[in-house]
């Protein structure tokens, strides 16, 4: 059991069943123009079966508490993700997506990424999702629009997504703890370029206390998580941070420019720069 953690012959039919159940569930649940309650309930039932198959195919973690917490947060994330893409009303879809973000933040916290878990809640649910809801409130007509009650090719889309999921699950299940044959992992904490080529044990290449300190500095689970993440971000990845800042600035300017020019064009002006000039001269 511990030597071979995955048995593809035992889990293969399970995985195939999960893929088929996912296709059927999504096809039944996606909006198709007929709002029938029986199809919806049947879709939910098949979806629960697919989830159960995925849970059965999943690995058992070590402790019961860790396993329960991971199961709960990932179920919240996955179920509300499915509800996001099948709900008829876009406002409900946005609210389900907020619940997805909460589940994803929980998964990130279980994985030891404390800063990212909180940042997902703050940035996504607090800023991006509220922006989506603003646009929805600006642009949503009253009631359910007809294009929200139908979907493009629901069967083929569900089939494509489920087949992709099956292939991904198959390759995830075949992961082993053995190091890759071609190339060794870069040693922790040291830049990739200066790391020696693959050696059997890392302890011989560098002195032992240095290696221990470096490994401690690189371990995301040790204490002072956020401080060391900041150090990494503003040390080794400083140029990338600058590039991200420039990207944010460009996106801000671009969004403002497109909004003002689009409003001018909608107002019927042929000279699109006049309102901006008027605004600046009036100030």
């Amino acid at each position: 059991m511990t030597a071979i953690p995955f048995d593809p012959f035992a889990s293969g039919p399970l995985l195939a069943g999960a893929v088929v159940a996912t296709v059927a569930s999504l096809w039944l649940l996606l909006p198709n123009g007929r709002d029938s309650n029986s199809a919806r309930w049947l879709g939910m039932l098949v979806g629960v079966a697919a989830l159960a198959a995925f849970i059965l195919a999943g690995r058992r973690l070590g402790g019961l508490g860790e396993e329960a917490v991971f199961l709960i947060v990932s179920l919240v994330a996955v179920i509300s993700a499915a509800a996001t893409i099948v709900s008829r009303s876009p406002v409900y879809a946005a609210i389900w997506f907020a619940l997805t973000l909460a589940g994803v933040a929980g998964v990130l916290l279980v994985l030891g990424a404390q800063f990212l878990g909180v940042a997902t809640i703050v940035v996504y649910a607090g800023a991006i999702l509220v922006m989506f809801l603003f646009v929805l409130m600006l642009a949503q007509p009253a009631g359910l629009a007809p294009y929200d009650r139908v979907s493009n090719e629901p069967f083929l889309s569900a089939l494509a997504g489920a087949v992709l999921l099956g292939v991904l699950s198959l390759s995830i299940g075949r992961l082993t703890a053995a190091p890759a044959a071609c190339c060794g992992l870069p040693s922790r904490g040291t830049p990739v370029a200066s790391s020696p080529p693959a050696s059997a044990d890392a302890g011989t290449s560098t002195s032992a206390p240095d290696a221990g300190a470096v490994a401690l500095a690189a371990d995301p689970l040790a204490e002072n998580h956020v401080a060391r993440l900041g150090g990494e971000l503003f040390g080794r990845y400083l140029v990338s941070v600058e590039a991200a800042g420039v990207l944010l600035l460009v996106a801000l300017i671009g969004a403002i420019a497109v909004v003002s020019r689009g409003e001018a064009a909608l107002a019927g002006d042929t000279t699109t720069t006049r309102p901006i000039a008027d605004r600046s001269s009036a100030r």
Partner: peptide
Amino acid sequence: LPLLQNALTVGAILFSLGLVGILT
């Protein structure tokens, strides 16, 4: 390794559901 595999499975499910949503 089990935690890695489970988390990767959650990520794969989210990615596939997003793909279905954006297609349909």
